[in-house]
Each structure stands twice: as C-alpha cells, then as structure tokens.
C-alpha cells in the first residue's frame, strides 16, 4: 500500500518535469531564434527601415509597402472570412440537424483544413486572379487567404457556440424569442470571446503565410502603397523571402530585420486581441 502510494508520487513528479520541459524547450528554441534574428538585423532596425521603399541598395531598402500591404491584407481577409466563417458555424451548430448535407459540409471543412497552403495559391490564381479577373490584386490575395483561414474560423466558432449551455437557449425561447433573436441576443454575446480567439489565430496564420502569395504574384518591388483593393501589393513574408534569396550580405540583414518587424506586428495583434477577449470574458 505504502510503496504504491510512493510510486504514484514518483510518477507524478516525473510527469511534472516532463510537461515542464515540454513548455520550456520550445520557448528556449524560440527565444534563441528571436535573439539571433534580432542580433543579425539589429543594424537595420532604424526608423527609416519602416518608412522606406525597397531599393537595390540594401542599406536604403525599407519595408514600408510590405508592412502596409500585410496590414491591408489581414484586414480584408478578416472582413471576408469572419462573416462567412461565423455564419457557417451558426448554421452548423444552431440550424443544422445533422443530416447528410451537414455531414458533407463538415467533411469538407476538415478537408480544407488539411490542404497544403500552396494549393490555395493555385486555386486563388485560377479562380480569383484569372476566372474572376481580379488580377494580381490585394482583393484576390485576401480572398485566397480567407479561404485558407476559413476552417480555423469555423472550427473555433463552433466550439465557442457549443460551449453556450442549452438552458440559456431554452430560457430565451421561453421568453418568446425566435431562433435568430436567441442567437443574436444570447448565444453570440456569450461566445464572442471564443470566436475572437479563432479570429486571432486565423489572422496570425494569414499574416505569416507566404506560399499562396507567391503564386498570386504578390510583387516584391513596389514603389508605391496599395491605394485600393484592386491595386498590386506585397506582404511581409514575401519581402523577407525575396531578401533572403539575394546573394548580398546586406539583404540578409534586411531579412532579419524584416522578421523582427513581422514578429512584433504579430505580438501586437495578439496582445490587442487578447485584451479584448479578456474584457469580454469578464462580462461573462
């Protein structure tokens, strides 16, 4: 009896150490990576780097069009993906009855989540750039990215909707609310923080994706900022990718500095979203 208790405690402390390592190791790798990148790009991390256009001289080149392009891209992507994604989640959770159509949709969504991102690039090129003749524009990029992140938005939103207890839905029905009024007034306010988490995740994914944008022909040399959804654009990962592939050492520094900028933007986005999420959760 006593030895059994002891081995239980031993097992528990082993598990504790293992799970602690599982947290620390990735964090260490990430920190190491961040520090080396920061040291590599340190010389280029000056305000002009953020406000300059690309140049053939590494020391003059800046990241402005890529930064602006990336921000426009994720805003447009969210505008497209969030209503569609949350809408599908509401349909599947609140209206669907588990019939063959629902199953078909569900299988498709999980399939979409597993498709390599480069295929989304091919799809975007064929469908949005050519067939719908949007050209190599910001809009075509945003639609492609929206398709790419839809499964994440849908899955996270469904989880959030499912977490709302059915007793609250019944309470709302019993007060004479229709199904839509119940969703709008009771279910969505309660699941907003969970949905927002999904949106953050998907925005970060869209921010970091490179492969589909290469196919879509996001340019790397832009001497102007995109001024409409139809204008050509570039994005941070593309710019970084381009610099890395150049032979001059100066561009490698630029790439490192670009990575730091990308990471900072991602952290900022996450921070803002987590702030709003916590604020919403406090209300509940």
């Amino acid at each position: 009896m006593k030895s059994g208790w002891r081995s239980g405690r031993l097992l528990e402390s082993i598990l504790k150490v293992v799970s602690l390592l599982a947290v620390i190791i990735p964090l260490l790798i990430l920190t190491f990576f961040l520090i080396t990148v920061f040291l590599d790009g340190e010389s280029r991390l000056v305000p002009q780097f953020l406000t300059s256009y690309p140049s053939y001289k590494p020391e003059d080149a800046g990241i402005l069009p890529a930064l602006v392009g990336s921000i426009y891209l994720i805003i447009l992507t969210s505008v497209i993906a969030v209503p569609i994604g949350v809408g599908s989640a509401i349909y599947l959770e609140e209206y669907g009855n588990g019939g063959w159509l629902d199953n078909l949709i569900e299988i498709n969504i999980s399939n979409l989540a597993g498709v390599p991102s480069i295929l989304y690039g091919l799809l975007g090129l064929e469908l949005f750039v050519r067939a719908l003749s949007m050209g190599r524009s910001l809009l075509a990029g945003a639609f492609t990215m929206a398709l790419l992140v839809l499964p994440i938005v849908i899955t996270a939103s469904r989880e959030a909707l499912r977490a709302v207890p059915s007793s609250l839905r019944e309470a709302s029905y019993a007060l004479g609310a229709s199904r839509w009024e119940t969703i709008w007034q009771v279910v969505l306010p309660m699941s907003a923080s969970g949905i927002l988490t999904g949106v953050i995740l998907s925005v970060c994914r869209a921010m970091g994706e490179t492969a589909p944008l290469i196919f879509l022909g996001a340019l790397t040399y832009l001497a102007f900022l995109p001024d409409s959804p139809m204008s050509p654009f570039t994005a941070l990962p593309i710019q970084i990718f381009n610099w890395i592939s150049r032979p001059q050492a100066g561009f490698a520094e630029n790439a490192a500095a670009g990575i730091v900028v990308l990471m900072v933007v991602l952290l900022l986005l996450n921070g803002i979203a987590i702030y709003f999420r916590n604020k919403m959760q406090k209300r509940i």
Binding site: P165, S167, L168, A171, A174, G176, V186, P189
Partner: peptide, 19 residues
C-alpha cells in the same frame, strides 16, 4: 414564438443570462 409570450416558463435550474 408568440404563444410563448403568453405562456411564460421558469426552469429547474436558475438560468439568468450571464452576459
């Protein structure tokens, strides 16, 4: 929906809207 406005209901577990 209109009927339920004439016939109210109180449930077993108190369920005020948390939001």
């Amino acid at each position: 929906v209109l009927l339920r406005r004439r016939v109210g209901m109180v449930f077993q577990k108190p369920n005020p809207f948390p939001s």
